[in-house]
């Protein structure tokens, strides 16, 4: 029981200190999980992280489940995950509650109009970064552009694209298109 509580607290700390997600999380996990608690080695962390990136879901959550599972089996995996999302639940609920009551003030509306411009740029930057890692040959270039155009103009669930593209990835690899 004590170890489950430890897991929850350790990952709640990781959740609070993860600011922006993704790569921002690595040094914090290293410090909290590897250095302070010795729950995993640096190499194991890198493995978890790599798998976390290529499995569905939020990377921080996937990593938490891995380490929790390693420490305390299924219960550990679940508790560590609840720990990592707990701070978000509290903080976001508070902020959302406050913002809803201020949303109609003109200055708040203007601030968010400015912020939306920034969000555009941040999404653009995220896209170019992911593009470099995933569009590596003609086949992936074609897939990416096709998905982009179809999802801008047609009303199809993103889940459908995801399933079809996974199948396409397997097909392209089989017929030897990959890497060309």
């Amino acid at each position: 029981m004590k170890e489950l509580i430890d897991l929850f607290i350790a990952f709640a700390k990781v959740g609070v200190m993860t600011f922006g997600g993704g790569y921002a999380m690595i040094p914090i996990l290293e410090r909290e999980i590897v250095d302070k608690r010795n729950w995993a080695s640096s190499e194991e962390m890198m493995d978890y992280y790599a798998v976390g990136q290529c499995t569905p879901g939020v990377i921080a959550v996937n990593t938490a489940t891995f380490i929790g599972q390693k420490r305390r089996g299924t219960a550990g995996g679940i508790i560590a995950t609840l720990g990592v999302v707990f701070p978000s639940l509290v903080i976001i609920t508070l902020i959302a509650g406050i913002l809803t009551s201020f949303a109609d003030i003109p200055q708040v509306e203007q601030a968010f109009a400015g912020i939306r411009v920034c969000v555009c740029v941040l999404i653009f930057n995220a896209v170019t970064k992911l593009w470099k890692k995933s569009v590596t040959d003609k086949a992936t270039l074609a897939l990416c552009l096709l998905v982009f155009v179809l999802s801008v103009f047609l009303d199809i669930s993103p889940a459908v694209f995801v399933i079809l593209c996974a199948a396409a990835g397997i097909l392209f690899t089989k017929v030897g298109l990959r890497g060309k």
Binding site: C54, W131, S134, T140, F148, S151, F161, A166, G169
Partner: peptide, 20 residues
């Protein structure tokens, strides 16, 4: 798994760009 993700990653980029 590897081949599936080879196709999934560019899909994700396309979807995020469309949301953008």
């Amino acid at each position: 798994v590897d081949a599936g993700f080879y196709g999934l990653r560019p899909c994700s980029v396309g979807l995020i760009a469309a949301a953008g």
